[in-house]
């Protein structure tokens, strides 16, 4: 079963980070990706530019809307994701708990709806 971890963090937490801090952060994520790959569950990941660089598009209601900024204005924003392939929710939750973002932010776990009938 495929699961996507949505990584929500508060950009303010990163505001004062030095280049050394960033290097360390990259290392932590690199190790996590390595662990996922080694376990054979890794599918995909990305990390995203901050939410204030987002552009939101919608055609809902029949009119085309292109808007500067994220869809929801919240303190914690979507900063990246991981997609993994594991047998069940317990396995997905176990990996999500190891995700670096879970240590200081929140990780939302959702199963893929693509393979369900």
């Amino acid at each position: 079963m495929r699961y996507t971890f949505l990584l929500y963090t508060n950009p303010a937490d990163f505001a004062d980070m030095t280049p050394e801090d960033w290097a360390k952060e990259k290392e932590v994520y690199g190790a996590y990706i390595g662990a996922l790959q080694e376990a054979g569950v890794f599918i995909d990941t990305d990390w995203l530019h901050p939410a204030d660089t987002a552009t939101t598009v919608s055609l809902a209601g029949g009119t085309e809307m292109v808007q500067d900024g994220p869809f929801a204005d919240t303190k914690e924003t979507l900063g990246g994701f991981f997609t993994v392939d594991v047998p069940d929710l317990d396995a997905a939750l176990a990996w999500a708990k190891k995700c670096p973002a879970a240590q200081y932010g929140k990780v939302e776990v959702r199963a893929s709806a693509m393979d369900s009938a």
Partner: peptide, 15 residues
Amino acid sequence: IKASGIAFRVPDAPD
């Protein structure tokens, strides 16, 4: 339970 893939099994010893 169905959509999120909660498994029908007895949890492993640590859990």
